[in-house]
């Protein structure tokens, strides 16, 4: 925590969790997508569903998907902007009872056909947690450049990924592993101190046994 968590952030109201946090979840999902979003299905859960409308949560989530920050004064107009930019929206409800009460499931389709499913939680203040990606645990805050590597649960994958990063001089700040079961789908979450270059991500995707690589950059991607 720092003093600007106490005096700040500058944000569009009314709620740090239901509005500012929602913008951040949307923005994180956009970054994870890495390409223009043409279809977005937004399924709200718990308090996001129950009180979201009055808090502008749906508008805030869409604003984030459009790349806005929590202090962007166009947040209340995000639906119209999405329409202009050709992003189709569909809202619904889902029961993510095992998640924080302020949660949303986003199912996104990109212009190049990429499909991404993200569950985001607004966990207090305007802090967020990206809880799941494509049905597997993720749990990262978006404060660091983050690599999400889906792979099959076999020996050697972790070493390959970490040595690729260290060859590039990239320091790993935190790393977590999850798997559905022994020998099944597994995921590595690597929060890094430096950005991972695009060609390294491509190289990762080429590796044997790696199924999908999703990257969260702190920088705004040019292509979007």
């Amino acid at each position: 925590m720092n003093v600007f968590d106490i005096i700040g952030p500058v944000m569009v109201g009314p709620s740090s969790s239901h509005t500012a946090g929602a913008v951040k979840i949307g923005k994180a999902a956009r970054k994870l997508m890495g390409e223009k979003i043409i279809n977005a299905q937004l399924l709200l859960s718990g308090s996001f569903y129950a009180t979201g409308k009055g808090h502008g949560t749906p508008k805030a989530l869409v604003a984030g998907l459009l790349g806005m920050e929590p202090d962007d004064e166009r947040i209340p107009d995000s639906f119209e902007i999405a329409k202009k930019e050709g992003m189709k929206l569909k809202f619904g409800q889902v029961d993510l009872h095992e998640r924080h009460s302020n949660s949303v499931q986003l199912i996104l389709e990109g212009a190049h056909g990429r499909i991404l499913e993200v569950i985001g939680e607004s966990i207090g203040g305007s802090r967020i947690n990206i809880a799941e990606i494509d049905g597997l645990e993720a749990n990262f805050s978006g404060d660091f450049p983050t690599l999400v590597v889906h792979n099959s649960d076999r020996p050697g994958h972790i070493a390959k990924v970490t040595s690729l990063l260290s060859n590039q001089g990239i320091n790993i700040a935190a790393m977590r592993l999850y798997r559905q079961g022994r020998g099944q789908n597994a995921v590595m979450i690597l929060e890094c101190d430096q950005e991972v270059p695009k060609d390294r991500i491509d190289a990762l995707e080429e590796m044997d046994g790696i199924e999908k690589v999703t990257y969260y950059s702190l920088e705004e991607a040019d292509e979007l």
């Binding site: 106490i6 952030p9 500058v10 569009v12 109201g13 009314p14 709620s15 509005t19």
Partner: peptide, 21 residues
């Protein structure tokens, strides 16, 4: 009121209490 109306405010310490300081 502006906070409730989706205008830009400074959370201090929260959005709900943004009018006091």
């Amino acid at each position: 009121e502006s906070n409730a109306c989706m205008k830009k405010i400074v959370a201090a310490p929260t959005a709900g209490s943004c009018g006091v300081l």
